[in-house]
């Protein structure tokens, strides 16, 4: 057999970290989907060669620290308001690729108004929406997308629809808005899912280049710390519980 050292040579490299990612160790917990999606965003920016043209907007939540990991100009935004911030950036700098990167508490709870209106205006931006059904950064509280029966620190006996309403399928709402051009729900738990998710992100960024309006990508994600499961078990739980409710696929592609 070939010696490993014979294989590990620059000319044989087929996959490595994107140059758009910094060398900082990500602050996310082991197995966190944020890391995968950060990587995919970075790879798309690198492959499209748009580092100079990309401006990211990352609001409060675990990914508020995205600016430490993505080597592009980034604005940190207040909780829920990234779509408003990105609106101004996209309008004042129409030659740029502007994206927001938001969690479910941010996008589907406190920032519901901002996301609906930015999408309804058809702002020429990419929205990346990480849905893990929980507030990660603040310690695992119930999110608008928490499933019925899902235990969280503020629904310790499981989410009860009578008490807390039903999980919000905001992506379905967004798909109805004429301003959106591409609305899809993806995941990133298997190599196949990662490939598809990357394709969707690529298409979304290309849509911005083609001035097609808002492209919206939900990534059904895990939060092993919040769910109190190992990363591997979290993926299994996601497949078993999240994906039947948040079904993967394109909701709109115009």
């Amino acid at each position: 057999m070939a010696d490993i050292n014979e294989i590990i040579k620059e000319e044989n490299l087929v996959y490595s970290k994107s140059k758009i990612l910094t060398d900082n160790i990500m602050s996310y917990c082991p197995g966190c989907t944020h890391g995968v999606v950060h990587k995919l965003v970075a790879e798309v920016i690198e492959e499209m060669n748009i580092q100079e043209k990309t401006i990211g907007v990352c609001p409060v939540g675990c990914s508020v620290l995205a600016y430490k990991f993505l080597n592009i100009d980034i604005q940190q935004a207040s909780h829920g308001r990234a779509p408003a911030v990105a609106t101004a950036v996209a309008r004042l700098k129409p030659d740029k690729y502007v994206f927001t990167y938001q969690g479910d508490g941010d996008l589907a709870s406190i920032g519901t108004g901002e996301i609906i209106h930015a999408c309804n205006r058809g702002e020429n931006i990419v929205v990346i929406f990480i849905n893990n059904g929980i507030y990660g950064m603040t310690g695992g509280q119930m999110a608008p997308t928490s499933l019925i029966g899902m235990p969280t620190s503020t629904s310790p006996y499981g989410r009860d629809a009578k008490l807390a309403g039903n999980p919000l399928k905001i992506t379905e709402l967004i798909a109805q808005l004429p301003g959106t051009t591409f609305v899809t729900r993806q995941a990133a738990h298997t190599p196949a899912a990662v490939r598809k998710c990357k394709k969707a992100i690529l298409k979304a960024f290309e849509n911005v280049g083609n001035k097609k309006g808002t492209s919206f990508i939900e990534v059904v994600s895990t939060c092993s710390s919040g769910w109190k499961l190992s990363p591997v078990k979290s993926n299994e739980w996601m497949v078993e519980h999240m994906l039947p409710f948040y079904q993967l696929g394109d909701l709109k592609d115009e």
Binding site: Y15, K17, Y28
Partner: peptide
């Protein structure tokens, strides 16, 4: 060298080589 491992790695710590 199929890259599956690197693709799902959240921390981008895996380089893959193939011959």
């Amino acid at each position: 060298g199929c890259t599956n491992c690197a693709m799902v790695c959240p921390d981008s710590v895996i380089d893959v080589y193939r011959v």
